[in-house]
Amino acid sequence: MQHTKFMSTGNNKSKRVCHAYPFLISFLLLLSSVCSAQNISKYYKSSKQENGVLYFVMPKMEFDNKSNGSNLNYDITYLTTLDSATVNISFTDDSVNSIDRISFVQNGKEFSSNPKKIYIEPHKSKWVHRYTSRFSFNDLHFLFAQEISPKMILHTSAGAKELTVNQSSWRKNSVIVSRVFSMIKLSKGQ
């Protein structure tokens, strides 16, 4: 009788272990999907067009200027049949001065472009400047392949505004963007 009771307890234990497995597997899958730095598919979107493939990359890196509290977010759109990529920026600042030139400065090299204004609108006590500019795809790939973070300089009518990106954030995210650019080049067959 006692033996039967023991058996039944053992079955319950094994049942409980069986029920725990799906949760354990789900948790591990979740952990791998969230933590995996190698999975670059969530960092870009692609769309097949009549004249090539359109890629959209949104780096999770913000340029800022700690002294005046301004910051800049950007995204990159690239159509594979073109040599240049579109870099759209959202610059949040106190001033309303228009931007005449955007430059990336890194290791003594400078990549510049003359942007076009999309809009300017207020956000809380500041202004959001939205501009579009074009940079060579190869220059951008070179920029993101470097370990040292670049400076971004916005040339305005009231002078130049210098913005920097956190070095650790750059090291972490530039690798991903560089891998996306490498993948685009490989897909093009370059």
Binding site: S33, K45, S47, Q49, N51, L54, F56, D75, T77, T86
Partner: peptide, 18 residues
């Protein structure tokens, strides 16, 4: 959850902007 899905399609083709 991390799911991408379609919302709408129009008759315009040839996208260059996102």
């Amino acid at each position: 959850t991390s799911v991408k899905a379609p919302v709408a399609v129009t008759s315009n083709s040839g996208s260059t902007k996102v």
